[in-house]
Design a protein around this nucleic acid. Structure first.
Lengths: 189, 189
DNA sequence: GTCTATAATAGGATAGAC
DNA sequence: GTCTATCCTATTATAGAC
């Protein structure tokens, strides 16, 4: 019985990349096989539920990524608010490869996903704004205002990614992240 | 020789709807056939270049839509700036069915489109911000500032559409449009 | 866990009658 | 312009050997 070529986590990470590059429908098993280096049969060994199961695990990875790379830094009360924000935004920029990579929240929102995927998507999108909201509340911003701004933050991230891809110009994204940082520093600095 | 069941323009409009509902890869010929009411063979009669040709015409329709429904109202110097803006934003809200429909600029930016589609996409995305930029310039806003705000406008539209779909909450989109109107009125009112 | 082989279906596209 | 029939390929998925 041959050993696993790569850890399961790494398989999921590569699937994640493939899904957000090609979209759900565009991510064919041939491409997923190439992205992971695993044959189709091996993919079905890892994911008996097939492509749908892969998608579910990939969304779960996205959720964990947001938790550890965005929300955890933002609510890390040991640090001053400004450096918490900078860490989170740096992680956001890196996570999207500075605008080259798309967001799964967008990708899986296209087409007719099943209910499980749709609910996971809703939860993940909601989670995304929570960290920013907490940071603003900690900094003394009023609740309704904090909610509005944190929503606005996710909207700007998603919109900038879309426009950067359409214009084929990453700076549209990186500049927007810089502008977000500036806006936050005016509020919480 | 049977007459055409529907005008060609209407066929393209229905394809437009199908593409932005399902994405390029998700828009199968079966679905395009159902959306238009035409058999596959008839679709190939209208579009000898197949699905790719349909996509190109659909993007052209999107460009024309932006020109007549967004940019034309925005630069209509016969009207006061505020009502020009209101007309354009109302058209934007309607064009996306108040947040229920996705934007082709996003849809066709996913996956690996060919060069023709990619270039058309770039042009269309660029066109989108031009009308808003012109309105701001007319209102006396400084050029660099006008450019920045008009970009920001498209980013917010695209981002709000993504988030509204992910959260399955149209109000995320409609509220953002209202906020955009308010921001503009502070500048040009 | 990986492999080869293969089933079963859906996808894009075309031919030719009407 | 539309229809039925069909081709070919790609796609998802499974079986069984190692």
């Amino acid at each position: 019985m041959p050993a696993a070529l790569i850890p399961r986590d790494e398989v999921v990470r590569r699937l994640f990349d493939a899904f957000r590059t090609f979209g759900y429908e565009g991510a064919t098993l041939a491409r997923l096989s190439e992205a992971t280096g695993l044959g189709r049969a091996s993919l079905y060994h890892y994911f008996p539920e097939g492509k749908d199961g892969m998608a579910r695990e990939v969304i779960a990875l996205a959720r964990e990524w947001i938790k550890s790379n965005v929300n955890a830094p933002l609510v890390n009360v040991g640090e001053p608010a400004t450096s918490r924000l900078k860490t989170a935004l740096r992680n956001v920029a890196n996570g999207y490869d500075n605008g080259r990579a798309a967001c799964l929240i967008n990708i899986f929102g296209i087409g007719d996903a099943n209910d499980v995927v749709r609910e996971a998507l809703r939860e993940t999108a909601s989670l995304y704004s929570h960290g920013f909201e907490r940071l603003l509340l900690d900094a003394g911003v009023q609740k309704s205002k904090a909610r509005e701004i944190s929503f606005d933050t996710v909207i700007q991230i998603e919109g900038a990614l879309v426009l950067a891809r359409a214009l084929d110009d990453r700076s549209v994204f990186t500049k927007r992240i810089q502008k977000l940082e500036k806006q936050y520093l005016e509020l919480i600095g």
